[in-house]
């Protein structure tokens, strides 16, 4: 008998900050090429869950598996560091505040990690940067510094930087929340393109419209638990839980 092995497998995730339990026994499976949106009010634990996947916020208990490898395995410190750096190379992450490296050019932002960690030569790294920037439509900004870019451009560079490591999985932590409304679309476009290229993605977002149009599955989290989960048309249009209904109603009012 063979067990099906989910690509991303979070088992009984629990996370406590002191007395506060921000994740309460959450399990989540994501298949390859799936796109999952996590929505919910702020403080619901959605970012914490996302950041547990690459162990940026280590779980208090529970397991995270990626492609058959346990991410948060128990190892002596030095071995664990080696292991986690290896795992993180396979998981791209995009942050709300971009976190580009301001002292480096766009090119250097993208080439740093491949050169340092994969031993890619200068020429190959440059070709890689050009290719990724072409991809996100910013090839003409290759020698700019991040401070010379708009928010939307910064976020597209951040996505290109993550993609240059050829990740198996992309995590988006409110990638458009810090952007001016008119800049949101260009970033959404890039994410849609990734979706079409069959990248596996887990997206924490406040953008219900985007989540509905791109994602295969939506999780609504509140108070550290998954309240409701299902296809976008179900969660957004026929939610069964009162908490989901309330959240969506408030969110729609807020958006008006």
């Amino acid at each position: 008998m063979t067990h099906h092995r989910p690509f991303v497998d979070i088992r009984h995730a629990q996370k406590c900050f002191g007395e506060l339990e921000v994740l309460k026994d959450i399990s989540l499976q994501v298949e390859q090429q799936q796109i999952v949106a996590i929505i919910g009010p702020s403080g619901s634990g959605k970012s914490t869950l996302l950041r547990a996947i690459n162990d940026l916020d280590p779980l208090t208990s529970g397991e995270v598996w990626l492609d058959g490898v346990q991410v948060n395995k128990l190892l002596p410190h030095a071995q664990y560091e080696k292991h986690i750096n290896q795992v993180r190379q396979q998981i791209g992450m995009v942050f709300q505040h971009f976190n580009l490296f301001p002292h480096l050019t766009v090119r250097e932002n993208i080439t740093l990690a491949p050169k340092l960690l994969k031993g890619v030569s200068d020429d190959e790294a440059n070709a890689l940067a050009e290719q990724q920037l072409e991809h996100v439509g910013l090839i003409d900004r290759i020698d700019y510094h991040p401070s010379q870019l708009s928010g939307g451009q910064k976020q597209r560079v951040a996505i290109a930087r993550a993609l240059a490591m050829k990740p198996k999985l992309m995590l988006f932590d409110e990638a458009t929340s810090a952007l001016d409304p008119e800049l949101v679309e260009e970033v959404n476009q890039v994410m849609k393109m990734l979706a079409e290229e069959a990248m596996t993605m887990i997206i924490v977002t406040h953008e219900m419209g985007f989540a509905e149009s791109v994602c295969d599955r939506v999780l609504f989290m509140d108070g550290g638990v998954v309240v409701e989960e299902g296809a976008p048309e179900v969660v957004f249009h026929n939610p069964t839980q009162d908490r989901t209904k309330n959240f969506l109603r408030k969110h729609l009012e807020g958006a008006k």
Binding site: N54, E81, F101
Partner: peptide, 14 residues
């Protein structure tokens, strides 16, 4: 900014 260290670690840098 703490995000700088986080972004670097996320890419796989030690």
């Amino acid at each position: 900014d703490k995000g700088q260290m986080e972004a670097a670690r996320t890419l796989g840098l030690s």
